[in-house]
Design a protein around this nucleic acid. Structure first.
Lengths: 367, 367
DNA sequence: TTGTACGCGTTATCAG
DNA sequence: CTGATAACGCGTACAA
C-alpha cells in the first residue's frame, strides 16, 4: 500500500479510501489508485485489516465428518452464499470428538471469528453454548440431539404425550438460529407417496434414538393415521450399521408377504433394505417398494435407483449464512424477542425405480 | 495480553516470552503468567501475530468438489496431520471453475498463506503455476491432466510409445511436490486378483481421457501380458456418467458368455457395471466378477459389496502436509535438485462379494 | 532475568 | 477532497 501511495505521490490514507469506495474521494484519484494497485499486484493484508478493524469476514463452520457426501453438499451451499456476501468459510471437521470441537472454537476465537455455523451437530450442545457465551452469533443446521428411547414406544403404540410434540422445536431458549429440514413432513411425504401407489401393507425401518429418527417416525404414523391405516409395523435395528439393519429387515421379510411398502429412516437404511430384499429373493419394486430420505448422491446409483425425499442441502447451507449475516445488518441479536429463531425447509419427493404400484397393472392401465 | 501483564505487574514482553517458552525466563514468572492467562481466558490474536511475524500457520487446500466422499477422506487426512504440526487448513472448493480457483489463490495470498495443497486438480495447471510464481510451496495430490485419446488406442492395440511411459511422471519440471496413487499398480492388482480366481475372459471398462484412466488401463494390459492372456477387450463409454457406462456394459454383455471378469476404471464405473449386469440378468459374482478402484465409502454398500483396490486416502492427505512442512525445515526448496519431487503410494485390495471363482466349486473344494 | 520501544499494514479520526 | 497521525496486539532487538 505504501508502494502504491509513493508511486502516485499520495498518502496511504488516500489509497485506503480509494480502495474501499469511500464517497469522499475524487473520481480521478480513485481510478489512478485502482490502476496502480493493479499494476503493482497489490494485495491487502487480511491480517492487518483484521487487527485494525477487529472484525473478520470469516465464518466458522464446524462439521462432524466431511466424508459422507451429505455434509459436502451443505458445505457447498454455505460457501456459495458466503462468497456472494464477501465472506470466507473456515472449516473444521470435529469427527464427533469433543476435544476437537473445543479446539475448533479456540481457533475461531483466535481468528476473531464471530459467525459460526454448526452442521448436523449430534452431541451435547456444549460447544454452541460456549460459543454464544463468547459472544458469537451461531446458526445450527439440523441439530439432532439424542432422545429417550421410550418416546419411540409412545409414538408406535401409546398415546403421544405433550413432550413429543414439543421436541420438534429444538434448543432451550439459547439465542441461536436453527435451520432445519422438516423431518415430520418428510416421513409423511414418503408414506403418502406409497399409499398413493395403492399400498396397504407398510413398514418403517426406524433410525437411531435421535430427534430426526423420532420425527420421521412420527410423520409415518401421522400419514397412516390420516389414511385410517394405522397401526402398521415399525422395525428397530440393534445398531445403525448396515449389518444390523439388514438382519432386522431380513427377519421381517421372513414373516411377511408381498407386496410391502417401506419407509426407511434415511437413504442408508433404505440401502440396507435393498440388500436384505435381494438376499431374501424379494424383488424391488415388484415385491417391496422402498423410499429413503435425504437423497444422498448415491441414491441414484443404487440398484434399482432409490425413490427418496430430498433434503434441500444447498438451501440449508445458504440459509444459515443468510440468517447470520443479514440479521447482523438489522442489528437485532437473534429473532424478534432475542430468543432463538427457527426456519424449517421442506423436502422434495424424487421418484426413481424403487417404488411401484401395489398390484400388477390391469389391462385398462396397461393400454 | 496487556491485562495479563498488568494483573501480574510485569511487562507485556515478559508475558509474550513466557507464553512461547522462551528459555530466558524464570520458572516462577512463567508459571504465574500461564496461570493468569488461563484465569483471564487469554487468547492470542492470530491477526496480530501474523502481522508481526509475517508467517501463518495456515495451509491452503483447494479441492474441486467436496461432495463425493473421496475428497472428504483426503481432507480428513490433511486436517489430521496439519493439526499435529500446529497448522490449520483453509479449504476452498473450486468446483472446477477457473474463476473460483483464481479467487481461492487471491484469498490465500491475502491471508499470507505460503503452503498450498491441491487435491485432484483436473484442469490446466495454471493455478499451480501462478501459486509457485507467487512464492508458494505447493503439493499436489493425484494430479490428473487430460491425455490425448489416441494414447488409449496405442495401449489397447498398438505398441506403447515412449510418450506413454513418460506420462506416468507428472509435471513439466515445476517446482512442486506430487503425491500420487499408483494407478498402474492398481490396475495390475485388480487384474491379477481376477486371474488368480481362475478367470480367463476379461473386460476393462475404461475411464475418461485423463492420466489415471490411461494408467489403470496400462496396468490392466501389463498384468494380462505377463500372464500371456493379452489381448482382451476394453470398453469405452461415450461419457463418464452412469447411463453411458451402463449401455456400454449392456452392449458388451449381449455378445458375451459367462463367466466374465471385469476391471472397472473406478468404483462408480463398477457400480454402472453392477446395474447393467442386473438389467441383463447376469448374476454377480457368479456370472460376472467385477472389481473397482478407489474404495469410496459406498463400495461396501453396493449389492453385492464391491471388491476394489483402495486408495490410501488418509495417507495421501497426510503425506502432502508432510511434504510441505518438513521440507521447509530442511530449507531445500523442493526435491534434491530444486525440481519436482514425486511420492507414489500403493493401493490395497479389498475383497468383498463382487468377485468369485471363474468356475463352480468342485466337490473337493466344497468340502 | 526483565523492561522499553519500535514496527508489521491497515483504517479511523481529525485537521486542513 | 486529502494528509498526517495514532492505534490495533504481538514479537523482538536492545538496553538494563
Amino acid at each position: 500500500m505504501k508502494d502504491v501511495a509513493a508511486a502516485l505521490g499520495v498518502s496511504t490514507a488516500t489509497v485506503s479510501r480509494a480502495l474501499k469506495d469511500d464517497p469522499a474521494i475524487s473520481l480521478a484519484t480513485r481510478r489512478a489508485v485502482l490502476e496502480m494497485a493493479q499494476r503493482v499486484q497489490y494485495r491487502p493484508s487480511a491480517a492487518a485489516r483484521r487487527l485494525r478493524t477487529k472484525s473478520t469476514s470469516l465464518i466458522g463452520v464446524v462439521v462432524q465428518s466431511v466424508g459422507d457426501g451429505y455434509v459436502g453438499e451443505v458445505v457447498l451451499g454455505i460457501q456459495g452464499r458466503a462468497r456472494d456476501l464477501g465472506y470466507q468459510p473456515l472449516f473444521f471437521a470435529a469427527e464427533g470428538r469433543t476435544d476437537l470441537e473445543s479446539e475448533a472454537l479456540d481457533v475461531f476465537l483466535s481468528e476473531q471469528v464471530t459467525e459460526l455455523i454448526a452442521v448436523s451437530p449430534t452431541g451435547r450442545p456444549e460447544l454452541l453454548r460456549r460459543a454464544v457465551a463468547e459472544g458469537m452469533h451461531v446458526a445450527v443446521i439440523n441439530a439432532d440431539a439424542e432422545v429417550p428411547a421410550r418416546f419411540f414406544g409412545e409414538v408406535t403404540s401409546g398415546t403421544i404425550s405433550g413432550q413429543i410434540s414439543r421436541i420438534g422445536a429444538p434448543g432451550r431458549g439459547e439465542p441461536m438460529c436453527h435451520i432445519r429440514f422438516d423431518d415430520v413432513a418428510a416421513g409423511e411425504l414418503a408414506t403418502t407417496h406409497l399409499a398413493g401407489l395403492g399400498h396397504r401393507a407398510f413398514v418403517h425401518l426406524r433410525g437411531p434414538n435421535v430427534r430426526s429418527g423420532l420425527l420421521r417416525l412420527l410423520g409415518y404414523r401421522q400419514a397412516l393415521t390420516a389414511l385410517g391405516l394405522w397401526p402398521q409395523p415399525v422395525l428397530t435395528a440393534a445398531l445403525s450399521d448396515m449389518g444390523s439393519r439388514e438382519s432386522a429387515v431380513a427377519a421381517f421379510l421372513r414373516q411377511a408377504r408381498p407386496p410391502v411398502a417401506m419407509v426407511a429412516y434415511d437413504d442408508l437404511a433404505a440401502v440396507a433394505a435393498l440388500r436384505a430384499a435381494h438376499q431374501a429373493g424379494w424383488r424391488v419394486p415388484e415385491d417391496l417398494s422402498v423410499v429413503g430420505i435425504d437423497d444422498i448422491q448415491f441414491a441414484s446409483y443404487t440398484n434399482p435407483g432409490l425413490t427418496t425425499v430430498a433434503q434441500p442441502k444447498h438451501e440449508l447451507g445458504a440459509l444459515a449464512v443468510d440468517a447470520l449475516l443479514t440479521r447482523r445488518g438489522a442489528g437485532a441479536p437473534v429473532g424478534p424477542d432475542g430468543a432463538e429463531e427457527v426456519r424449517v425447509l421442506d423436502g422434495q419427493l424424487i421418484i426413481r425405480e424403487s417404488t411401484a404400484s401395489a398390484r400388477p397393472v390391469t389391462r385398462e392401465e396397461a393400454q
